[in-house]
Amino acid sequence: MPDERFFGTYETLSVAEIAALLGAAASPTNSAAYAISRAATVTDEDLSDAVILCSSRDSLEKLSQRDFGLCLTTEKLRAEFDEAKGTVIAVSSPKLAFAMVTEKLHFSLEEKEPETEHAKLNGADIHSTAFVAASAEIGNSAVIGANSYIGRGVVVGDDVQIADNVSVTHAIIGARTSIFAGVRIGQAGFGFVPGPNGLVRVPQLGRVIIGEDVEIGANTTIDRGALSDTTIGNCSKIDNLVQIGHNVQIGANCVIAAQSGVSGSCIIEDGAMLGGQVGLADHLRVGEKAQIAARAGLMRDVPAGERWGGAPARPIKDWLRETAALTKLAKKR
């Protein structure tokens, strides 16, 4: 369920109301009055009153034999819900349907009801021009620089250093983390789905969770998750001008150099290193202690411990061999 510190919930919707909104039929039909109060992922523990998205066989397998409130799926997968322990609605675009339903269920408190009252804090060094929302939690000896903004519900750990002109919303920040000037943390991720009248924004209902002893360079941006969280592990170091998309999971002791871009739902395992201007397509995995050369463009997963380079990226020996061969060919012309 979306974190109540950051997100509000409208009144519940009945299955019948959701079916009418989507112009689709629910099965079984006797579930029309059942109340749906929240959005969830298939991995959440309690799905009894939740609407969930199930648009792949992987998510279908995770949902198998579990009780759930309402599942939005495709016509093709609907046939495999014969023994479902919940209500199912099949539509042509489950992701669009999920976006439409979650918009009716939840909203960002920061965006709809921002706080105007300053926090009254002892033990933290907060610049006179900074704003810290009254509901934020600021740890001992934290420093918040000029013109920075700390939104409602945000948690900042002990000894965190936040420089000038930083904005933080929908986030929990671990102790001793350093955030350089101009960083943006917790804004809505880049999530859209085609609708009949153009693009429809997918509500972003997750958080940003930053571990301890992390460093985030100037003007880096870290989007909050769609439903799951965007996470950065302990002791990872992120350079200036890096973009971290929604739902990205970065492990401990990772290094990401300047001007890199990590697309949504990528996983970067512990100890991995990305050179400058590296780009990752979405839903990729970079294995533990893998190294990616500068300006590489990743289109597929990188196994643990391997070194890759080039665009599209491949094992670095292959890339260097191919580059040398092309150089020789060019000299012969």
Rank of each mutant, 00 (worst) to 15 (best):
D44M: 11
D46M: 04
S48Q: 09
V51E: 08
V51Y: 03
C54K: 12
S55Q: 15
S56P: 05
R57Y: 11
L63T: 02
L63V: 02
L63R: 10
S64P: 00
R66H: 03
D67N: 14
D67P: 02
D67R: 11
D67H: 12
F68W: 03
F68A: 07
F68P: 04
G69N: 07
G69D: 06
L70G: 09
L72W: 10
A79G: 15
D82Q: 13
E83W: 04
K85P: 00
K85A: 08
V88E: 04
I89N: 06
S92T: 15
S93H: 05
S93F: 02
P94A: 11
L96I: 05
A99M: 11
A99S: 12
M100K: 14
V101R: 05
V101Q: 09
V101T: 10
K104G: 01
K104H: 10
L105R: 02
L105A: 07
H106F: 00
F107V: 02
S108K: 06
L109K: 14
L109A: 01
E113V: 08
P114D: 00
P114A: 00
P114I: 01
E117T: 12
E117D: 14
H118G: 03
H118P: 08
A119V: 01
A119C: 07
A119I: 01
L121N: 03
N122H: 12
G123E: 10
D125I: 11
H127V: 07
T129D: 02
A133C: 10
A134T: 09
S135D: 02
A136C: 08
A136W: 04
E137I: 15
E137P: 00
N140C: 08
A142Q: 08
V143T: 13
I144F: 03
G145K: 09
G145W: 07
A146D: 15
N147D: 12
N147T: 03
S148P: 06
I150Y: 06
I150M: 06
G151W: 01
R152F: 00
V154G: 02
V154Y: 07
V154K: 06
V154T: 11
V155I: 15
V156H: 06
D158P: 03
D159H: 13
Q161K: 14
D164R: 11
N165I: 08
N165S: 12
S167M: 11
T169H: 07
T169G: 01
H170S: 06
H170R: 05
H170L: 01
H170G: 01
A171G: 03
I172P: 00
